[in-house]
Design a protein around this nucleic acid. Sequence first.
RNA 1: AGCGGGGUAGGGUAGCAUGGAGUGCCCGCCGGGCUCAUAACCCGGAGAUCGGUGGUUCAAAUCCACCUCCCGCUACCA
Length: 484
Amino acid sequence: MQKFYITTPLYYVNDKPHIGHAFATVTADIMARWHRLNGEKVFFLTGTDEHGEKNQKAADAKGMTPQQYVDGLADIYKGVWKDLNISYDGFVRTSSPAHEEAASRFVELMNKSGDIYKGEYEGWYCIPDETFFTDLQLVDGRCPDCGREVKKVKEESYFFKLSEYQQRLLDHYASHPQFLSPELRADEIKNRVKAGLKDLSITRAAIKWGVPFPLDKSRTVYVWVEALVGYLSGIGWRSKESEALWPADTHLVGKEINWFHAVVWPAMLMSAGLQIPKRIFAHGWWTVDGKKMSKSVGNVVDPVEMVRKYSADTFRYFLVREKPISEDGDFSEKAMITRINGELVADLGNLVSRTLTLTGRFNGPIAGRPELESHLRLDKITERMDRFDPFGALEEIWSFVRASNKYVNEKAPWKLEGAELSNSLYNLLEACRILSILVSPYMPETSEKLNAQLGVSPGTLKDCRFMEWKGNAVRGEHLFRKIE
RNA sequence: AGCGGGGUAGGGUAGCAUGGAGUGCCCGCCGGGCUCAUAACCCGGAGAUCGGUGGUUCAAAUCCACCUCCCGCUACCA
């Protein structure tokens, strides 16, 4: 059986999830559900990145231990994913003992390869922000975040010989064109790697809330290096199951963390002697009402509120329908309402509604010839999904919805009777049944409702063709409520 | 500054690699049809000097050069 292992980023838990987190997680969920429909052995991992100074300080301020503090945050994430109907198979937390052990073991493997050495890190440090910057990042010699003065700091540190992997990385990119996805991000990474790689400092002396560095327990492992290992610890690295799942098929990541996944992570895996994931897919960002989302502007979109207001299915639908996964796009409730009323209510909901009303008026057996089948482009839908394009697949699915609505107008079943009426109903009912399957990764609850009204059991991709009608259709409530 | 991406009807996009009538899609607008359907559905129409200038060519949204505007990334900030 074919397997499919997909991950979301392990979210840094400095706050509750916003639309960006929801977008990545919903997208990964849709892909996971799609591959399950295809009969594959799927493992869908998400989780939280919980170490680092920020969490330690936040915990101190609340008089809690860091562990207590991040426990609460991890629960918030899990709660939101439940609200959004996320079907994850694993949830990895970087503060868990299993993860710490895995991270430690990983560092030891890198060390065995001779890729770790002790050196000195030098950088510009902004004391109030507690952040290091490189020469390039400074703005007029000052902190790019707060504009205050920075201080040159030297710190003893262990390094990973990232620079030695330049050629192997470039070779890998060349021989695995899909690895850097989407294409428009590929050159960005290739050119930067071509320009040369610096070794990566992988320990922190000052940060206590982290995984102890195995070669020198007075330090902790740099959070990034450690968090990446979460993709292994999250599937129980070195267990039988993890052997069958690795390498990951897709790491879905935000474009801002593409570097770590497309450069640092494969180099680390090469060093540790492990296989490289098949695809790193960098997704785009959301603006909100045309503006960059930020707390200070106060336009942060809360997914929980959207679910409460519009339902999980409609919010999920909007997130993947409004823009291509790889592009940036704008979120507004107005745009969402337009999509709900126009595409869900008027296209899909209306198709089901008119089909079931017409069916309800007919008493005879339902059978016919597949006249609508040529409008169903399952090959195109599958091709889009294979390219990690659930947005494009939705376009194809909707062209079938439109063709079906058109079929109703052309056939005018209300004027037909007998075998011709039966034939038109057959086509519409089969179209609805197939649509229910195709839409299920995006809107699982809607698919269930539709199946119940059609009187059919959930199908798989194999059932997405016109067969004999075997359902028992009874008109029920509207699938979607129009937003006035 | 370096590297990368982009500027196509009122808005959003596809098309560009392999040049061939401004061709497609969604929203909005105008008109018509239908009456099964949540005034939903279907058909038709208006609306674009394809960011600008110059070049290559019989022919440029598409290729080349320059200009201009917007955006992203720039590694120890997760």
